[in-house]
Design a protein around this nucleic acid. Structure first.
Lengths: 227, 227
DNA sequence: CGAATAACTTAACCTTGGTTAAGTATAGAC
DNA sequence: GTCTATACTTAACCAAGGTTAAGTTATTCG
């Protein structure tokens, strides 16, 4: 069984991963979205989706969109688990900064063995989240599905950063400069009108960040009790 | 430049690596040897060799055999460096045993970035040899080329294990049981006639190992001076 | 309703890396 | 010197994964 999944090409794994990700953000996943996500032509997606259907990894209907089948979802989650574990490992064990890990993990995720997966998992103490705050699926395919509101939706109060968008290294570097890491408390002080910047306090420092940037930072209202 | 090498498929890298390895053990590298090493048909090698010639990565002449060009050699050594660094890393940092590392390194060697290579190299303190005693090429393609005589060629005296053959995990486990790791001193006590076993002392224990096995353990005469 | 546009599919083609089967070269035996 | 086994090459094919170009569906606009 794990035999079969190992024979899947890296491309197949990437498609399934993209479909999984897109299905979290949209309730209909279209070929066009997959093409954009994967950076390939629509024709390539069309052909691949047909193959994935034949292998029963997805179901597809022009009305319904593309849906992962249970086995397809399992593969996707396995790859996501690899990806996020590797990201965590690269940061913690090899001193990578959080804007460098995605690219490396993108390649490693397809080739590591279960042995490798287990060893880094154990070494890290079974981490639950990657360096950007994304949940790491468990080996049996469970994953914490809460999604948090964006920082851009708050105009006052104290929140705690839960996750940041991880796909633009430059943005990650900037967020790092701002100290906006998962787990960090942020006081939202106010916001300028007409899409203006949001004023926040992070680690005692008052800074302003663009509304657009704030849509990429996901937070949770801070628990009461600590100043 | 590193651009170009990154675009090489994993298969191309594997062929170059095989040709490199074979060129150390034979002064003529034939398509047949490459086919055996890579586990593919002779036809596949024929075709690939033609392509490698077009890309100026090897030269080929039926009389001369296959030879790496300077750029081909550079790619080969880069992959060998990756392979051996990864093996060392897996042992030292992730607790792999030396019989497990080859398989994992075989896949990782093609996908790691220069960043990854540099980080593990630094973390290990710029190791010069992999866990089996094979030399790790430097970044600029230099490699320690001494080859050591096999243990099977000795029938008395004290030697130090330098390197062991790394391709059979079961043999590696057995060698591990015998304590025959690189760096270990061995007293050769004698050998039975007609290809019989060799009697040795390792770490105080007297054991006998088959002649065949002894051809896979490469040693150096021990320096005088320490009992 | 019909036409324009966006989304998708199909077809024809490319490259990489493999296969088997059939043909050619070459070296050694006689 | 020819015969034959071994080594090698070529040809025809396959599958994965991509491309562009040319249809086809569907939706939306007027």
């Amino acid at each position: 069984m794990s035999r079969a999944t190992l024979l899947l090409g890296a491309a197949v794994e990437d498609y399934l991963k993209s479909i999984y990700k897109l299905s979290l953000e949209n309730e209909r996943v279209t070929p066009k979205m997959v093409a954009a996500e994967q950076g390939v032509s629509l024709a390539a997606v069309s052909k691949m989706v047909k193959r994935l259907c034949e292998q029963k990894l997805v179901r597809y209907d022009r009305g319904e969109g593309i849906d992962l089948s249970p086995p397809g979802r399992k593969v996707a989650l396995e790859i996501v688990r690899h990806h996020r574990l590797i990201e965590a490992y690269l940061c913690e064990a090899l001193g990578y900064s959080w804007d460098e890990v995605d690219e490396e993990a993108e390649k490693l995720e397809h080739v590591i063995s279960e042995e490798f997966e287990d060893r880094i998992d154990r070494l890290l103490g079974h981490p639950t989240h990657d360096p950007h705050g994304a949940p790491i699926p468990t080996k049996d395919g469970e994953v914490d599905h809460r999604d948090h509101p964006a920082l851009s939706e708050f105009d006052s109060g104290r929140v705690v950063v839960q996750r940041v968008n991880d796909h633009d290294p430059a943005m990650l570097r900037y967020l790092g400069d701002c100290g906006l890491y998962p787990g960090v408390s942020v006081d939202v002080l106010g916001e300028e009108p007409f899409g203006g910047p949001i004023h926040i306090r992070v680690a005692g420092e008052e800074i302003s960040i663009g509304k657009e940037l704030a849509t990429h930072v996901f937070v949770e209202v801070a628990e009461e009790g600590k100043k």
